[in-house]
Design a protein around this nucleic acid. Structure first.
Lengths: 158, 158
DNA sequence: ACACCTTCGTTCGAATTTGAACAACAGGAG
DNA sequence: CTCCTGTTGTTCAAATTCGAACGAAGGTGT
C-alpha cells in the first residue's frame, strides 16, 4: 500500500511544470476566447464544435461522439448545439439506425463561418504557443500530453 | 508584412501538441474538479484561492493580486471569496494604506480545510500528470509553458 | 415475448463565470 | 489645491456549465 503518513508533495521542478500548465492553460483560453468572440462572434467551444464537425466524414457527428471529442458534458453540448442552430451554423438530423440518435451537421453557412474564423484563430495559437516553442519542445509536449490524455480517457469510462 | 494569402496552418506535429494540450487540460480539470468536490466540498478554483493565500506572507492577499495569480476576472474572484467567506474559510479585511483595497485572509478553519484537502489533490495531480511524465519531459514542460505564460502576461496588460 | 440493464439526448435547477457599468478613491501634473 | 487619469472592488444582467433525473429506445439473456 502507499504511505499513510506524509504525502509526496511536489518538488520545485514538478511544481513549476504543474503551475506552468495551469497558468498557461488559463491565460491561453482567456486570450483565444476574447479573440474569437470579437473576431467571429464565436466562443472557443463553439469554434471547436465547428472544427470537429468540419473534420468529420459527412460534416456530421453523433452528439455523444462530439461531446467526447470536445471533452464536455452532454448537457453542455445540447445547449451549445442549440445556440449554433439558432445562428444557422449547425443543424440536427435524426439517425436512421437509431431512433434516439441525433446527428449534429455543419451547414453551408457554418462551413463559411469556420473558413472565415480559422485563419485568425490559428494565427493566434501560433503566436501564443506554437511559435514560442522549439520543435523539440513541441514534440515532447505532444508525446507527453498525448500520453496523459490517453490515460485519462481510459479510467474515465471503465 | 506577413502573407496576406494563405495562413500558416498547423502541421501534424504542431496540431498534435495543440490538441494534446487542450484535451489534457480539459480532462485534467474535469477530474480534479470532481475529486475536490467529492473529497472536500471545494471547487478547483476555491482550492487554488486557499493555496495562494496559504503561500502568501500573512495568509492574506489583495483582491487584485489574487485575481492575477488565479488568472480569473475580478468579478469572478469577488464571487468566490464571498462563497468562501460564507463557508468560514476566508475573511475580508480592509487595507490600511488604501481605503479601496481589500485583503482576502485565510482563517484558521480555512487553513485546516486546506491541510485536509491538499494530500488527496496532490496525489491525483501526481497520478494523472506528474508521474506519467519523465523528469526530462517535466523540465521541458516547465520551461516551455513558463515562457508561454510569461509572454502572455506581458502583452495582456500593456 | 419478457424482464433487465445500458445508452441516447434532453430538460431542469443550481452554481459559476464574464464583461460592462459603477462609485469611491489614489496619484500626479499643472 | 484642483483637475485628470488610472485603480480598486463590487454589482448587475446575461451566458454558460454541470450533474441529476428523465423518457424513450436499444440490446441481451432466458
Amino acid at each position: 500500500m502507499s504511505s499513510l503518513n506524509e504525502p509526496r508533495w511536489l518538488d520545485q521542478d514538478e511544481m513549476a511544470a504543474w503551475r506552468g500548465f495551469v497558468v498557461a492553460s488559463n491565460l491561453l483560453n482567456r486570450r483565444l476566447e476574447r479573440q474569437l468572440k470579437e473576431d467571429s462572434g464565436l466562443s472557443h467551444q463553439q469554434y471547436e464544435i465547428l472544427v470537429h464537425l468540419s473534420a468529420a466524414p459527412a460534416g456530421s457527428l453523433r452528439m455523444t461522439e462530439l461531446a467526447d471529442k470536445l471533452v464536455t458534458s452532454k448537457s453542455g453540448l445540447t445547449y451549445q448545439v442549440t445556440q449554433l442552430e439558432r445562428m444557422g451554423l449547425v443543424g440536427r438530423r435524426s439517425c436512421p439506425s437509431d431512433v434516439r440518435g441525433v446527428f449534429a451537421e455543419l451547414t453551408d453557412q457554418g462551413r463559411e463561418t469556420l473558413r472565415q474564423a480559422a485563419p485568425g484563430h490559428v494565427a493566434l495559437v501560433r503566436e501564443l504557443l506554437i511559435d514560442v516553442l522549439t520543435r523539440e519542445q513541441l514534440a515532447v509536449l505532444a508525446e507527453g500530453l498525448g500520453e496523459v490524455s490517453a490515460r485519462l480517457r481510459l479510467d474515465d469510462t471503465p
